[in-house]
Nucleic acid binder design. Structure first.
Lengths: 344, 344
DNA sequence: AAAAATATTGTTAACGTTAACATAGAAGAA
DNA sequence: TTCTTCTATGTTAACGTTAACAATATTTTT
C-alpha cells in the first residue's frame, strides 16, 4: 500500500481546515457545519481516503474485534460454531480474529497472548483438551477481559459458558441403552478436568443409579476426545474386562466412538450385536459409517450465536451477569445402539 | 482491561532506563547489554506486561494479519479452505480476520473496506456470486494491497488465483456422461462473469465438441450457485425443452444439483432413470442424499494452503509473480449419473 | 596516549487518530 | 447595546510503540 497515503491530515490541508474538523466531519459528529461536512466528505472520497482503524483503536482503546479460539478447526461442530459467531458479530459491527489451539495447552496460551496483544475487545474460547492449568483464565478475569466459554468451559471460575447440558444428555443417552435392555454399560470418558468430560460421566452415572445398576470402576476408562484415544481407551477397556465384557459403551463423543468401533472390530466383535455403542456430538461422519452411530445432536450454530451474543453483552455492559447458558440437545437414534436387535 | 495498564513506559520507570532501551530489550534487539536485557524482561514479566501490537502496527505499518473474505461460510468447501489458510498463516506468524460476503456484492465491498481500514497485510478473497463490477479489485491493485483469489477469481486482472482447472474438470465430467452413452446433455451454468461459471460451461462445450455433439442453446441455462437457483434453473430447462428433454444434466455445482434434483422429482421424473445429473464440488451432502451425486472433488484444504502460501509470498516480496495455480481434481462417480442403468 | 571503533544507552519525532479543552464569531436575551 | 449562549472550528496532548539519529562509555588499534 505504498502510494502516498491519504490521511485526515492530507484532507485537512486540501480543504484548508484543521484535522479535527475533518475528523468530526468524517465521523458525522455533532457541531460541524453541514456545508463543511459535505465538502470534507466529498474531498475524502475524491482523494481515496481510507480510515485507519489501527490509529483509531489505539486512541480509543477499542478494536471492535472479537478473538475466537477453536480447539479443533477440522471438526464440523466447531466450523458451525464459527459460522454462528460470525453472524452475530457481523450484525453487531464486530469482526473476528480466528485462532486455533489444535487441542494444545501451549498453543492455546499463545493464541490468548496474541489476542491480548492485538487488543481484541473480547474472547470466545473452547478449552483445549490438554489444558489442566487455569491460571491464564484467572489472569484474563483480573485484566477484566470480557470472555465467554463455548462448548467446553471451566466451572465456577467466573466466566460465562454457553453449551449444552452434558449431564442430562449423557443421562438420556445412557437411559436409552438401559431402555433397550442393556445392563452392562461401560463409559469411555473424556478429560475429567473439562466440564464436558466430567458432566458426561456424571450423566452416565446418574442414569445407572436411577436404574439401580451398580457402576463398576473397570467399566469406566478415561480416554480422550480424539479418535485415536477412543481406540486406545476401548482396547484398554476390553482388556480389563475380559471375564465380563460390557454389552454397550457410552463414548464421550463421536470421534472417540469411531476409534472404539475400530478397536471392537479389531477384537473380532460386531457392532451392535456384540457391543452396542453410542457417541456424542453428531459428527458428520456419524450417519455415513457402516453402522450409523446413535448420538446426541448439539446445536453448534446456535452455540456460536448465543456465545457471541453473550460476549458482546459482556463487552458493552460491565454489569452483564456471569451465567451458564444451556441449549437443548436431541437424541439421534441410529443403528449402533442395536435398537432392533435382541439384547441382554 | 481496566487495571492501570503496564506499558514499556511503566517498565522504563521501574528499571530506571529509557523506554527505548526497554523496547530493545523486549524485542531481543541487538545492542542491549545482556544484564539489562534480562533485568528488563524479568521486570516486564513480573509487572504483567502485555505488548500492544496495535501501537506497533501503527508505527511499523504492518499488522501480521491476513484478511479472508468467504462468500458462503455455511459451505463445507469454504470451511475446509479456511482450515488450510489458518494452518499456513499460523506457521508464518500471521493471524486471520475472517469476513463473510454472503454472496453479496455490497457486503463484499464492505468486507474489503473493513479489511483495508484494519490495515491487513494482505487479502484472500473468493468472489461473491453477485459481483459484476471489478472496480474495487483494480483499486486494491493500485493500492498495492497484496491479494490472492481462491476458487473464484477474475481472469487477466493482475491478481493471482488459486483454484482448480474448472474447464478440464467439467470436460471430464461431461465426457463421463458421454461415455455412459448420453447424448442429450444439458448444462445448468453458473454466473458467466465468474471464472468458475465460464470455465465449467466451456468444459461442457469442449466435451460435446470433441464428441461431435451439437450444443443446443436451449440446453444451457444460466442459473446460479445456490440450491434455489438450481431448482429454478432446472424448472426453466424442463419447461423450454418439453418436446425434447435432456437425458442428463451437468450442474455447475453440488448445491445447484440438489435444487435441480428437487425440480426433476417435482416434475414426476426420476434420477437417474429419467434424467441423470452430475454436480461439482463434492459437498458433504452429496453422498448422503437418496441417490448419491456424481461430482468432482476439489481439494479445498489444499486450495486454502496454497492460496495462503502464495499470498504470504506476495506480502513478503514485492517481486512475487502474479500467476494462476491449478490444483488437481478427482472425479467421484456415484449413482446419480446412472452408470449401472440403460441409457439413450 | 591519542585516535578510532564499538557497545550501550538516550532523545526526539513520528505513525493517524480522537479527547479535552480553548477560542472566535454569530445569534439571542436582557 | 451589552451580556450570554450557542455553533463551529482550532490547539494541544495523548494512545504505545519504533525509527533515526545523538551521545556517552568502553574497548581496540596504532
Amino acid at each position: 500500500m505504498s502510494p502516498k497515503r491519504v490521511t485526515i491530515k492530507t484532507i485537512a490541508k486540501e480543504v484548508g481546515m484543521s484535522i479535527m474538523t475533518v475528523s468530526r466531519a468524517l465521523n458525522n459528529n455533532s457541531n460541524v457545519n453541514d456545508q463543511t461536512k459535505t465538502k470534507v466528505q466529498q474531498v475524502a472520497k475524491k482523494m481515496g481516503y481510507i480510515p485507519n482503524h489501527i490509529a483509531k483503536s489505539l486512541v480509543q482503546r477499542k478494536t471492535f474485534t472479537i478473538g475466537v479460539v477453536v480447539p479443533e478447526i477440522a471438526h464440523s461442530f466447531f466450523q458451525e460454531v464459527i459460522r454462528g459467531i460470525e453472524e452475530i458479530a457481523y450484525d453487531a459491527g464486530y469482526h473476528i480474529i480466528l485462532t486455533h489451539s489444535a487441542e494444545s495447552f501451549q498453543r492455546e496460551q499463545l493464541c490468548l497472548e496474541t489476542l491480548l496483544s492485538k487488543r481484541v475487545d473480547g474472547i470466545l474460547l473452547s478449552v483445549a483438551e490438554t489444558v489442566t492449568d487455569f491460571k491464564i483464565y484467572k489472569e484474563l478475569i483480573r485484566l477484566k477481559m470480557p470472555m465467554v466459554f463455548y462448548d467446553r468451559g471451566i466451572n465456577d471460575i467466573g466466566i460465562s459458558t454457553v453449551g449444552i447440558d452434558g449431564t442430562k444428555a449423557a443421562e438420556i443417552l445412557t437411559e436409552h441403552l438401559i431402555g433397550l435392555g442393556y445392563m452392562k454399560i461401560a463409559h469411555l470418558a473424556g478429560p475429567l478436568h473439562l466440564s464436558i468430560g466430567a458432566n458426561r460421566r456424571q450423566g452416565y452415572l446418574n442414569a445407572l443409579k436411577r436404574h439401580k445398576i451398580r457402576a463398576k470402576k473397570s467399566y469406566i476408562v478415561e480416554a480422550g476426545l480424539k479418535e485415536k484415544q477412543g481406540y486406545e481407551g476401548m482396547k484398554k477397556l476390553l482388556n480389563q474386562t475380559k471375564k465380563n465384557p460390557p454389552r454397550a459403551v457410552v463414548a464421550v463423543n463421536d470421534p472417540s466412538a469411531f476409534g472404539a468401533i475400530d478397536a471392537i472390530k479389531e477384537a473380532g466383535l460386531r457392532v451392535p450385536e456384540d457391543i452396542a455403542i453410542v457417541g456424542f456430538a453428531d459428527d458428520i461422519r456419524s450417519q455415513l459409517i457402516e453402522v450409523p452411530l446413535t448420538t446426541v445432536r448439539q446445536p453448534a450454530y446456535e452455540v456460536g450465536k448465543v456465545a457471541a451474543d453473550k460476549l458482546i453483552k459482556h463487552i458493552e455492559s460491565k454489569t452483564e451477569a456471569v451465567e451458564d447458558l444451556v441449549l437443548n440437545t436431541e437424541l439421534i437414534v441410529r443403528k449402533s445402539c442395536g435398537w432392533s436387535k435382541k439384547k441382554n
